[in-house]
């Protein structure tokens, strides 16, 4: 076995499963990520253009379903924890460093352009699909939701199908 600076992936997986189990046991729901980012977007729109937030269809529907406002949400608190937890792990392992990670075959600029484009697609897709890899795929599969399995298959299947075309970015 080659030496690795990361946790054994199966051990990591068991720990991830226990965290997900704890979420379900305590809050009756799974983990998530994109929902917290949506809260930030909705809150920003509320603050910057309150009139628009009152009239546009999406924000009206959202306000009806979230009477306490977008930021008082389980996912927002959970994601604040993710920032702290990620930082702690990186600090302990000595991985805290500002850097653009990319394949030596491409420039930093190309990496960042693709990061933004990928983010736009992922952000849009996570709303269309009602959750991302955490909320829809991982947490959905754990509760045997049909949608969770379809989500997993669609995300990973598409990424595999397109991998060839952007291989230079990664290998």
């Amino acid at each position: 076995m080659k030496k690795t600076k990361y946790l054994n992936p199966y051990v990591g997986g068991v720990l991830l499963g226990l965290v997900l189990l704890a979420a379900n046991f305590i809050a009756g729901r799974g983990l998530g990520a994109s929902g917290a980012l949506k809260s930030v977007v909705v809150e920003a729109v509320d603050v910057i253009t309150p009139k628009h937030a009152e009239n546009a269809a999406f924000y009206k529907e959202y306000a009806d379903k979230h009477p306490d406002g977008p930021m008082k949400s389980w996912l927002v608190f959970e994601m604040l924890g993710v920032v702290v937890g990620g930082f702690l792990s990186g600090a302990i392992a000595g991985r805290l460093k500002f850097k653009v990670e990319h394949s030596p075959k491409i420039t930093s600029k190309r990496r960042l352009v693709f990061a933004v484009l990928g983010g736009i697609l992922f952000g849009f897709g996570s709303q269309m699909g009602r959750g991302c890899t955490s909320g829809s795929a991982l947490s959905g599969m754990a509760v045997l939701s049909v949608g969770g399995f379809i989500s997993t298959a669609a995300i990973f299947g598409t990424a595999y199908a397109l991998a060839y075309f952007v291989r230079k970015n990664w290998i």
Partner: peptide, 10 residues
Amino acid sequence: IMGAGFIMGG
């Protein structure tokens, strides 16, 4: 759409 975003954005 998420899959496309995943392979582009990493």
